[in-house]
Amino acid sequence: MALIEVEKVSKVHNPGLADEMKALDGVSLSIERGDVAVLTGPSGSGKTSLISLIGCMARPTEGKIRVDGKDVVKLPERFLTDIRRRRFGFIFQQFHLIRELTVLENVLLPLYPLETSFRTMKDTALAILHKLRIDGKKSLKIKNLSGGEQQRVAIARALVNEPQIIVADEPTAHLDSRLAQEFMDILKLCNQEGKTIIIATHDPFIQTNPLVSKTIAMRDGRLESMKKK
């Protein structure tokens, strides 16, 4: 059984309004456990909409999405939150870190709603920061970090809950090739630990990276092709 199954999914933004837009139109695909899947396509092709739906951050207008066999489309909001919290780690295009908080405080954020003690939270976050070799900057505020360092923090925040699936939207858009390589090295480690990785990108560096096991091409909200390496 595939880890993620998307079946005839459509998504209409702002339905019934003047700016109504059909972002996805009957997309079906599947992602296996341990895959490193890359969603490619030009801007406006529906990549971000699709990973939003896969990551349970929005609901499709039509179709079904199953995560680990469970249909998530009709689930109440609190269950979706629980799935996001336990199964997914998100890395956003602009990192979306809270700039006035320190590195450690940002990484702690996903742990606040859990019934774990402060000490456990802190130990977990420090372990991740150490693994990503940014623990030396744990007390610095985000606004004082370089782009590459900010991305490491964003990755640390995505990994701190030990998610099964990492979802990244244009993660290398603001990075030079050296930092992009570092990012892929980190993802490689995660993948070796059994994590499934889904990346929306139009960066050729990622698309051609040997780590990628599946390439899903999108165009005009439709699935253009799906190739497994």
Binding site: E77, R78, P113
Partner: peptide, 16 residues
């Protein structure tokens, strides 16, 4: 608004 969105995206419930 952005902060609320971030918190929700990383696993905070509406109630949280």
């Amino acid at each position: 608004k952005l902060e609320i969105g971030i918190l929700k995206a990383i696993g905070w419930d509406t109630a949280d």
